[in-house]
Amino acid sequence: MNAESGGTQLLLLLLLARKGEVPTMSEAIMSSQMETAPFDPRFPNQNQTKYCYQSYVDFHRCQKLKGEEYEPCQYFKKVFRSVCPNAWVEKWDEQLENGSFPSKI
């Protein structure tokens, strides 16, 4: 999801909060789809490096296969945006552009 829609959802929440109704985090999640990458049993350990990388690869493979408009692909993007350091994503985007990314998309 992009920052724009997240922002409007958040505004609603803030309005709700101003009226004195304090939302709990779970309510906030319910109403604004504010959720983070879930636990993934493929990566049950402390080391989450491959959760991040695999989601990045999956997103681009999904887009290549289904087209950029295909909504379910956004799930992978959400996951890698939550888990990957921004610097890593920038580096990989660059590598994808100049064809030096280490995985086949």
């Binding site: 490096t49 491959k50 991040c52 990388y53 695999q54 990314f101 280490p102 995985s103 086949k104």
Partner: peptide, 13 residues
């Protein structure tokens, strides 16, 4: 194999 080599052996390329 680590992510730096795309989690493949032999590395891609």
């Amino acid at each position: 194999p680590t992510i730096e080599i795309g989690m493949n052996w032999p590395p891609y390329g």
